[in-house]
Design a protein around this nucleic acid. Structure first.
Lengths: 221, 221
DNA sequence: CCAGCTACTGAATTTTTGTACAGTCTATCT
DNA sequence: AGATAGACTGTACAAAAATTCAGTAGCTGG
């Protein structure tokens, strides 16, 4: 039997809803879209459409509306395993910053082995520009809003001033601290009452300034 | 983040169900198919899949599971009929996010007048993707490392859950708070002992959720 | 003119679902 | 050893959705 104009309209509405949301509409949703004040209007249209074979209704099942195959677009043998991936390879020049995991070993901070992933952000967004992002471990800087897991934007330099947030390597350990120096004495101060400052004497202890903290990024609030 | 084996299995199950029935499965159906005795097992897998960006969950919507673009999308798939589309007009080019100043007046948060500048960062770096960056005023969220002047990455949506960090508008004022709702009672909780929660009743007070906090950026450590 | 179909409104009722909460167990990782 | 994440069981409840019932109207063919 042929569908009425109204029924055709309802069927279109169902198709569109699936296309847009990925799941069929409820009676109430159909009613709202088509301007019915009662979900029952939709119910009755669905019954009619089913009687006429235009759809299949799964009883007692929310959104249980099926459209008998219209044009075979998903023939199951068409799995897109080898899709034309437009994903470009590693682009050094682009506006990407490598994300470095905080590695305790005394190896250079910026090494390929330590690159976790990349972040598409312009280095110049920070001032001075960031060279990489360091994933921070621990809560030693929580008072200034640097939390565990945060990414610290780091400008690579050895030249830092008192009061600045620095990435420092003391022997094997890499840490983020506030820098304070008087003569040959350096304090690496945590921004958290629970952590004591690291006190160093340059004539005795080995200290390498890896860079300057120029910003913070946190994923997932 | 990578999916676990079990999560991969759940994802396959969802795909298969859609393929076979034409609509996504419910929690109970997933549980039955995979042999769980509790639908909550499925629920938690879905949450994990959403966190990792593998699926999208429509809250309070039966079978509201979406699989991000599979294969080719249709040319007319750009109108949202049922989805509570955020009222946004600003279209930023792919890899830039507008920075919005926190404006008290009851005007729309995302309006050209309020755009301070732009930040060259990929919106997809956050999950769910950020639509804009909001400059935070005040220290009410300092306990979770959101400080005055920070940029909050915001995903525009009205659809938020308990415990999430939201951008809310109460009357004229726009604030960033932790969201907590029980029935028609909503608490907007500051993450700072010095600030009292804002208690609202939806039947009385006007509350608009402008978006979800999905990350933080701070310039100049 | 009446029966039967289409096209609704409105309200009531029951199922189905999504979601929260309280636990258990087992790996990791620290 | 203790904290944390994944992977569940089980119970409970409220919102979402299907379904039924009772009406109102316009049309159409017999």
């Amino acid at each position: 039997m042929k569908l009425t104009q109204r029924q055709e309209r309802v069927l279109d509405c169902i198709r569109a809803h699936i296309e847009e949301t990925g799941y069929p509409p409820t009676r109430a949703e159909i009613a709202k879209i088509l301007g019915f004040r009662s979900a029952n209007a939709a119910e009755e249209h669905l019954r009619a459409l089913e009687r006429k074979g235009a759809i299949e209704i799964m009883q007692h099942t929310s959104r249980g509306i099926r459209l008998p195959d219209l044009g075979q677009d998903t023939p199951s043998a068409n799995t897109s395993a080898t899709a034309p991936a437009p994903t470009s390879e590693i682009e050094q020049d682009a506006k990407h910053l490598p994300i470095i995991g905080l590695v305790a070993a005394g190896s250079p901070v910026l090494a390929v082995e330590h690159v976790e992933e990349h972040c598409a952000i312009a280095p110049e967004f920070f001032n001075p520009p960031a060279h990489y992002l360091l994933r921070v471990r621990g809560m030693s800087m929580k008072n200034i809003g640097i939390l565990d897991g945060d990414l610290l934007a780091v400008h690579q330099t050895h030249d830092v001033r008192n009061g600045q947030i620095v990435v420092a390597r003391v022997g094997d350990e890499v840490t983020v601290k506030r820098f304070q120096r008087q003569g040959s004495h350096v304090s690496l101060i945590a921004e958290n009452e629970e952590f004591a400052p690291i006190e160093l004497d340059l004539s005795r202890d080995e200290l390498t300034i890896e860079g300057l903290g120029v910003g913070v990024i946190r994923q997932g609030s």
